[in-house]
Amino acid sequence: MRGEAHGGRGGAARRRDAVSSTPARVQRVEENASVPVPGEESLSVERVRLAIELDIPSDVRYIEDIVAMVTRQCAQLSYGARQLALNVPVALTEALSNAILYGNGEHPDRHVRVRAEVDRERLVVEVSDEGGGFDLEMSEIDPTSPENLLREDGRGLFLMRRLMDSVERFDDRGNVIRMTLRRS
């Protein structure tokens, strides 16, 4: 069902409108899903997996719309209220802003790829940029220590780790951050 709205009611069209309201252009939007359609609510969602894949320019103005798309996918599979309001949006915003600002240096010709897969068990999000990457272990400071509490930066990776069940980095396909969250 590529390009169709999950659950109907014009969701995909709204998403395209939302993203196109930002000045640059989304390069590719692919969505694959198999969800109950209106009138067939008796179908079980236990085995449903929603997937969304986007390729965006390095512009922080895309972040809010992408977060809304992924959060909506999680909401369709009944993720917890706190996960929808805190864990998913904050951790994904951090991963996207890291990729756009630091990975790609906001370079207009560099892109960020986002792939999110959601099922009733877990959300797995991969955010890839074209930068040189960084060492996850070496990059984290403790922003809660007294000497760091007044720092204006340094909380991004800390929050990703606290709000997700796992945060991993790969560099076999560019610089990739993979975050996993179990549904609760």
């Binding site: 949006p89 951090e94 800390f158």
Partner: peptide
């Protein structure tokens, strides 16, 4: 809605 680390940084 939500606040990210940049937002927290600005508040600090």
């Amino acid at each position: 809605g939500y606040i990210d680390s940049s937002g927290l940084g600005v508040l600090v």
